Simulated scan of single mutants.
Amino acid sequence: MAFSGGFGVTAAQGATNPNNDFQVANPPNDGISSLSWSPTANFLVSTSWDCEVYCYDVQANGQAVPKASIKHDKPALCSAWMHDGSAVFSGGCDNMVKKWDLATNTPTQIAAHDLPIRHLAWIPEVGLLVTGSWDKTLKYWDARQPTPTLQVQLPERCYALSCTHPLLVVGCAERHLQIFNLSNPQTPYRSIQSPLKYQTRCVATFPDKSGYLIGSIEGRVAVNHVEDSLASKNFTFKCHREQADIYAVNSISFHPRHGTFVTTGSDGVFNFWDKDSKQRLKQMQKCNAPIPCGAFNRDGSIFAYAVSYDWSKGGQDPMASAQGGNNIFLHATEETEVKPRPPANRVGGRR
């Protein structure tokens, strides 16, 4: 499907949509917690604090047509697709995972924890779903079985999770990081403390499986490698900051073709980066509310991002009246934004 920057935008321009991106009609009614794309077509799924899981069909002209939705009993926090695009997994504060068969529009509970499920990932190489929970466990599920095939105790609550088989990285509370080699999923390959000084917000495994990125609430990203032999390539850099104001890095996503990545932040900005040349490729215009999540589609031609409250200021949000609701935008990526560049000396405010 061709998707270029020439389509019309259906919403008024301004602070709500400063990057002139396509605005998805009929967005969720509360804070948006995750976005995930089908690996086989341009179908986009979102989860929300309104307990709903929504599926949109993104068409060639940029129109995003709502297709269907299912409901959890409590806020939905995470989503992932099966490798063949036939089903969506979603989890959340009702402590369960639902498998949504799109052909029959039927959701079925297939997994459960004792506390909310914060993250999950489908691992096609082994045909299992992995779920991370605030109950301090990591569980692996065969969707055809009612009990987990494996349960691993975590040192703390799961706050972040990313997998590129066989590398699985779990970010936990108190800055714990658990690095797994899925050839031996019962035992962490490494258990370390985050190199960042504050709470882990997100992680993203490298496409080449040699390392991972960590984002924290202090507006900083760490580039870390699994093996000590590559430790000289590790570094951290500052981002999502405005003078004295520091914002959380809410999500990190790698481009599927170029290996560059994008960060989204509580400052309402998303930035494109190249870790290998150590530089920012482009900083986009600031939205009027935080960007809690974002994701590239299967070929990297579209970056979807949500603009909604992310709870970074707690239950009382002083900007709530100015946010303009909850929105999803579709950004048609340009080569200059996502294609690697020759090395430079700095990336962001490198430490």
Rank of each mutant, 00 (worst) to 15 (best):
M1A: 04
G5H: 10
T10R: 06
A11V: 13
T16W: 15
D21T: 06
D21C: 08
G31H: 03
L35K: 03
L35Q: 04
S36N: 02
P39H: 09
L44V: 02
V45I: 07
C51F: 00
V53W: 07
V53F: 09
V58M: 01
N61C: 09
G62T: 00
P66D: 08
S69N: 05
H72T: 15
H72F: 06
P75T: 01
A76S: 09
W81D: 05
S90A: 15
C93I: 07
M96K: 13
K99R: 13
W100E: 12
D101F: 14
T104C: 07
T106N: 10
Q109S: 13
H113W: 09
H113V: 06
H113S: 03
D114G: 14
P116L: 14
I117A: 10
W122V: 05
L128R: 15
L128G: 03
V130W: 13
T131K: 03
S133L: 04
T137N: 02
L138A: 10
L138K: 05
P146H: 00
T149Q: 11
S162F: 05
T164L: 13
T164I: 15
P166W: 09
E174H: 12
Q178K: 04
L182V: 03
S183L: 09
P185W: 02
Q186W: 00
R190P: 14
Q193N: 08
R201E: 10
K209E: 06
S210N: 15
G211S: 08
G215K: 05
I217Y: 06
H225E: 07
L230V: 11
A231V: 11
K238R: 14
Y247H: 09
A248C: 04
S253Y: 11
R257E: 03
S266K: 01
G268Y: 08
F272Y: 09
K275H: 12
K275V: 09
K278Y: 12
R280S: 15
K286R: 11
C287H: 11
N288E: 00
A289G: 09
P290C: 04
P292D: 02
C293Q: 01
G294R: 05
F296H: 08
R298D: 05
I302V: 03
A304I: 10
A306N: 10
A306R: 05
W311F: 12
G315K: 04
D317G: 07
D317C: 12
S321P: 02
Q323R: 12
Q323I: 14
G324M: 14
G325F: 15
N327K: 13
T333I: 07
E335P: 02
G348Q: 04
G348L: 02
